[in-house]
Design a protein around this nucleic acid. Sequence first.
DNA 1: CATATAGCGATGCGATCACATCGCATTACT
DNA 2: AGTAATGCGATGTGATCGCATCGCTATATG
Lengths: 200, 200
Amino acid sequence: MGRGPGAQHVQRRNEIADAVLAIVADRGLAAVSLTEAAARAGVSPGRVQHYFPAKQQLLEAAFERGNELSSARIRAKAGADLQDAEPRLMLTTVLNELIPYDAASQAHMRVRQSFHALALADEQIAARLRQLYADFHRQMADLIARDQRAKRIPAALDAHNTALALVALAEGLAAYVLTGVASATTARERVLVAVADLYR
Amino acid sequence: MGRGPGAQHVQRRNEIADAVLAIVADRGLAAVSLTEAAARAGVSPGRVQHYFPAKQQLLEAAFERGNELSSARIRAKAGADLQDAEPRLMLTTVLNELIPYDAASQAHMRVRQSFHALALADEQIAARLRQLYADFHRQMADLIARDQRAKRIPAALDAHNTALALVALAEGLAAYVLTGVASATTARERVLVAVADLYR
DNA sequence: CATATAGCGATGCGATCACATCGCATTACT
DNA sequence: AGTAATGCGATGTGATCGCATCGCTATATG
């Protein structure tokens, strides 16, 4: 372990990562630079460089931070444990949370979308994204499987692929909302229809 | 009209725009610079600057070019006229074309995704994207409406919103394929299932 | 108290960028 | 033939980038 004052290490890192997320949310990944991040965080460029020796590490930290915040937000909305609630309600809540509904969630989704694009050119980010999706899709698939065992959803459905498609739909719709192709209301409605179709 | 030799004007512009698309497809939008574009196109930086006085114009031209190529590819697969074929076949074909199936279509979709992300920070691109989607969704909705009149699809469905959701699903799945979250086979299967559900 | 280590601001450096400028070649119209 | 406009390569420029380096400070440990 390090000597010296390392108590605020994590907090300082998070402050800088949050600044990066803010820049990405309102001007895109291309607007992120060490000096911009420092300015947004209200610290010196030297401090940013101290915590993140290379820009790549800064972006990766911001990516991780964004994922933490996203899943925290979902967890807060869905309650403490995904295992303890009615699967249908949980499914609806989580999928709905993927559709932007206010400035903060809109910012979150913009960041997600930006990093998703970065993954196309950065295998490091892509690999991490695959991990995260594997977990997420598995959790959604578990919810579906539970209601299949309870005879509420047809057993013939492939739980994992159905979950995959549901999330893909929600994210596709979310992308539309972000660029103004569709309204958030329409998007949410289509998600509800898709879930209702499972329980038909 | 201009004097001098303007005969090859459009072709030269397209060559450069194509070079930009190639860069975006395999290294992302961030890798595009005037010199890179010139090198990829095999021309001098001066020529690039001559046809595109500002970088923004270069990117916009590449965006338009990419859209031309995409819709040309879809049109080629779907036949000459969307109005002349069986709606279900047409729907299936077009949606399937949104899922990458070879290196060329994968490159196309990477470019699409990249510009979609750019639209989050560039209102010019976003506005154009909204236009293109409005047209595309309307065409898909028309196909659905036709088979509603033919009693093959339930009349209770909202044609436009159903089309919107179908395309969103296909694009969400396409994004998964690009980052390796899901296989192209799985993605195509889910699209087929979604279409089949309309005709249930 | 001594010392080592982390924190971190300041400054410098080489590379790269978008873009401006210049100048000549090419071609079409008069 | 003369003229004007485009085509376009070459070179310069100021800004910004990521990153290295340096040096001082603050703190925790021996």
